[in-house]
Design a protein around this nucleic acid. Structure first.
Lengths: 313, 313
DNA sequence: GATCAGCTATAGCGATATTGTATAGCTCCA
DNA sequence: TGGAGCTATACAATATCGCTATAGCTGATC
């Protein structure tokens, strides 16, 4: 099998004619005829059905054409990578996010890809850090935004943000962005949190211990949407980062206040597998995510402390 | 660029030596030296750093190697497709499910792939039909299990199942698998359902109209996990398919009863884009999903009426 | 039905590209 | 310091590819 044969397959398939493909490729028609014949002989399969005025792909031919096309895409990627061109990327990339991050980042990220690399096939996967870690290692996703994993197994991580967590209550709770709540004031209150296997729960429990109190966690729910709904309906207060709450606060459906003594924070990192090179796709995605995080922090939508140098710095 | 050059790149990169690669490939060492040189000249980039006892990849060389490897994977797929071999597949496939289906199908599907094609990179995406349709058309996923879409735009669909929906209540609700509930008995009861944009909600509303009643939908939640939790905590009853409830019933956390007059059902189909050939990966995934559905229906875990011929039939 | 246009397939030959042989030159290790 | 192990290049031999010529088939037109 040779690249010239695959190239011929693609052109003949598109034009339905050896003669037309020969004209397009600037070679003699018998040369292409022999190439197709040699490919068919090597694969022991009929790629085309011949008729009096040309030839059309067989079902098997169509299937093999799909792979041949992918080969060409990879060759273009080789040339673009070699040239460090910012040509529009093609191919697929899987990107993972924790659920609280996915909403705020997905829309501008998809917009950025749509503008710069519209041919790229994005897979945005929302899941918890444990799953994302597993999928990164297995190569099912190419990079992920993670809350700092305890064991950095074979990952190359780039710190993004120390994200502040806020106390969330219903609109009539008196909570305000300008009035910080000491952590110990939570004692005795009905607090809604994710389950104990959730990293956010661990951070909050550690803060409670540090403040010398015990939290009354009456309800556990792993979905922040569920937590929000429960808070809105007066079932208690919760502790979450601000991005998923931002619209609810603006619409006066929820209220939020910073917490102090201690201030609960989570460390957000951008992670890639260490055992595979970072292709242009993943690099563009990572840079774009970092830019989005920076933008949201600087606009006050996402309270926290930036941890990385932006590309414009 | 030629396939022989890419093949040489891969072997030299692995062995760190032209001489060793030449020995492995059964060709003279100068032939490989010249192939690498010609590839480097064509791409205008240094792929290897030479030292006294061999050569190692540069960063750019590693990046290009990744693409070269993908080319080889596609060539192997061409050969396997041509031979109709059931060789272990490689590559990536995205499969979409509605959330109520994802849990019951994901585990056996991942198991089947792990057994037959462990090198395949699966992307299992849970989302509602509207999103899944969009991603199918954009090629972000390769196939999806869908509740019957109203407009089958460019899809090739294979019917799977008419899935029965059940009335779900807390364990002390008196609901039982052996005692069917007429739909009109739901009037006045507190019913928890997904929002109006959800297909299940539409079906249930149509059944209510047919029964001549109006439902009291006090709470809307799009997550079936949320719906289950609310029912368990006595906040009302809901209507769902059985698979996500099966374990809760067995553990006496929930109870379920069939509904009649009318019987609410949803039509489940397996869909592929019509404009791309179904590769071996997608075909294996589709066949496996159909087998899983059949198995669950026959074991009584998933009540409904099978709509397709199984491969063993 | 005959003829012609449009197409694919094969044979043979020449040109070009690739590989093998020989060997130079470099680095590193004992 | 000498030898082993390696890469790189020159040149000859070999293999592959493209071109020309042409046979044979199908389908459209008259």
């Amino acid at each position: 099998m040779e690249l010239s044969q695959l190239r011929t397959l693609i052109h003949v398939a598109e034009l339905g004619s050896l003669s037309k493909a020969a004209e397009r490729l600037g070679v003699a028609q018998p040369a292409l005829s022999r190439q197709i014949r040699m490919l068919e002989e090597e694969l022991a399969v009929r790629l085309f059905a011949r008729h009096g005025r040309g030839m059309i792909l067989t079902d098997k031919g169509r299937e093999i054409l799909e792979h041949a096309t992918r080969v060409m895409v990879e060759l273009e990627e080789i040339r673009a990578a070699a040239a460090d061109l910012d040509t529009p990327l093609r191919g697929r990339i899987g990107i993972g996010f924790p659920p609280t991050v996915a909403d705020i980042i997905s829309v501008p990220l998809v917009a950025a890809f749509g503008k710069a690399h519209p041919q790229v096939e994005l897979r945005l996967v929302g899941a918890y850090t444990g799953y994302l870690l597993d999928w990164l290692h297995r190569g099912e996703i190419d990079l992920a935004v993670l809350y700092d994993p305890h064991s950095a197994r074979s990952l190359r991580s780039q710190p993004l943000l120390l994200e502040n967590l806020f106390l969330i209550g219903p609109p009539d709770s008196g909570l305000s962005g300008t009035h910080a709540i000491p952590f110990k004031d939570l004692e005795g209150r009905r607090i809604l949190l994710p389950s104990t296997r959730h990293g956010l729960r661990t951070i909050v429990e550690q803060c409670a211990t540090e403040a010398g109190i015990t939290l009354n966690v009456a309800v556990e729910a792993d979905s922040y949407a569920t937590l929000k709904d429960l808070v809105r309906h007066g079932h208690g207060w919760t502790i979450l980062p601000l991005p998923p709450i931002h619209d609810d606060i603006a619409a006066n459906r929820l209220a939020a206040a910073p917490l102090i003594d201690p201030v609960p924070v989570r460390r957000l990192v951008l992670s890639y597998p260490a055992d595979r090179p970072v292709l242009r796709l993943a690099r563009f995605a990572g840079d774009t995510i970092a830019d989005i995080v920076t933008d949201h922090v600087e606009r006050g939508i996402w309270p926290g402390q930036l941890l990385h140098q932006t590309s414009s710095a």
